[in-house]
Amino acid sequence: SNREKAKQAFKELLRDKAVPSNASWEQAMKMVVTDPRYSALPKLSEKKQAFNAYKAQRE
């Protein structure tokens, strides 16, 4: 689905920018907000969900 693709793109973005798994949401956003993939997930709640999944995978 498109939403799954968007989630993957967002997680790839976090990986590409080397966002550490112990980063806070605010720290992570400063690192990725300028990338076009930041807008892949329109809802903030979805971004946070993908971010938390990313962190869980990295730990």
Rank of each mutant, 00 (worst) to 15 (best):
A56D: 13
A40G: 09
M31A: 08
N22F: 00
K11M: 15
W25A: 09
S24H: 07
R15E: 14
K7Y: 13
K11T: 15
A28W: 01
P42V: 05
E4V: 00
E4A: 00
V32S: 07
K43P: 06
R37W: 00
E4H: 12
P42A: 10
P20F: 00
V33R: 13
N2G: 09
L13C: 08
Q49R: 11
A18I: 03
D16K: 01
S45L: 03
P20S: 03
E46V: 01
R58G: 14
N52G: 08
A9W: 01
E59I: 12
E12Q: 08
Q57L: 03
A6N: 08
S45N: 13
L13E: 06
E59Q: 13
S45Q: 10
E46L: 01
A18F: 03
P42N: 02
K43R: 12
A53M: 05
R15D: 09
D16C: 00
A23E: 03
K48E: 07
T34D: 14
L14K: 05
V33P: 06
T34R: 08
L13S: 07
V33I: 13
A6K: 09
K17C: 06
A50S: 06
S39Y: 08
N52Q: 14
S1W: 05
E46C: 03
D16V: 01
E46N: 03
E4K: 06
E46Y: 01
S45F: 09
N2T: 14
Q8W: 02
A9S: 11
V32G: 06
P42Q: 07
K48Q: 10
D35M: 01
W25S: 11
D35Y: 00
N22A: 10
A23P: 03
Q8M: 05
R3K: 15
K55Q: 09
E4L: 09
Y54Q: 00
E59L: 05
L14F: 01
E46P: 01
M29Q: 14
M31Y: 07
N2Q: 14
S21R: 12
A56I: 08
N2H: 00
E4G: 06
E12W: 00
A28P: 04
K17G: 02
N22G: 09
R15V: 13
N22T: 13
S39I: 03
A28F: 03
P42L: 08
P20K: 01
N22L: 04
Q8Y: 04
A50T: 05
F10N: 14
K5S: 12
R37D: 01
F10G: 08
R3C: 14
R3D: 14
V19D: 07
Q57M: 07
V32F: 02
K30C: 05
Q8C: 06
L13Y: 03
K30P: 10
S24V: 01
A56P: 04
A23D: 03
E12T: 07
M29G: 09
M31L: 10
A53R: 04
A40Q: 05
L13W: 00
K5R: 10
K55P: 06
P36W: 01
D35S: 01
K5M: 13
R58K: 13
T34F: 06
N52P: 06
Q27R: 07
K47Q: 09
N22Y: 03
K47D: 05
E46F: 00
F51S: 04
A23K: 04
M29A: 11
K7V: 15
A50W: 02
K47V: 01
A50N: 02
K47H: 05
A53F: 00
R58A: 15
F10R: 07
R3G: 12
K30Q: 12
K5N: 12
S21M: 14
K11P: 07
